[in-house]
Amino acid sequence: GTLHLNGVTVKVPSLEKAIKAAKKFAKKYNLEVQVHGNTVHVH
């Protein structure tokens, strides 16, 4: 999967790991997580 954090793109081995990391990051910075196919966006 691919993880987008505020314009930074990170390749992640699995989508589940990407979503987990995204949710952790989003919670910390009070951001929103959106999943588009195998790409996770945090903004």
Rank of each mutant, 00 (worst) to 15 (best):
K27R: 09
K24R: 13
T39Y: 10
T39G: 04
N6T: 05
V42S: 02
H36N: 12
E16W: 06
L31F: 07
T9D: 07
H43A: 09
G7F: 10
V42H: 01
H43G: 10
A21H: 08
G1A: 14
K17A: 14
H41Y: 14
V40F: 01
A21N: 04
L15A: 01
A22I: 15
L5S: 04
H41Q: 13
N30K: 07
N6P: 10
K23V: 11
G1L: 12
E16D: 10
V12Q: 03
L31I: 05
V40E: 01
A26T: 00
E32G: 04
H41V: 14
G37L: 05
T39M: 11
L3E: 01
N30R: 05
K28D: 09
E32L: 09
F25C: 13
H4L: 11
G37P: 02
K23S: 04
T39A: 09
A18M: 10
L5P: 03
P13A: 14
V12P: 04
S14N: 12
L15K: 01
V8T: 09
A22L: 15
S14M: 06
N6S: 07
T2D: 06
P13K: 15
H36D: 12
G1K: 05
E32P: 02
T2M: 13
V10N: 02
V40T: 01
K20F: 03
K27P: 13
K17W: 14
K23D: 05
A18D: 00
N38A: 06
N38C: 08
K24V: 06
V40Q: 00
Y29H: 13
K27A: 09
I19F: 04
A22G: 02
V33T: 01
T2F: 15
Q34E: 14
H41R: 13
K17Y: 11
K23N: 08
N30D: 09
N6Y: 11
N38V: 09
H4M: 09
V42K: 02
N30W: 11
Q34F: 14
V8E: 05
T2Y: 15
K17N: 10
V10F: 12
H4N: 07
H41D: 07
H41M: 14
F25V: 06
I19R: 00
H41I: 15
T9P: 07
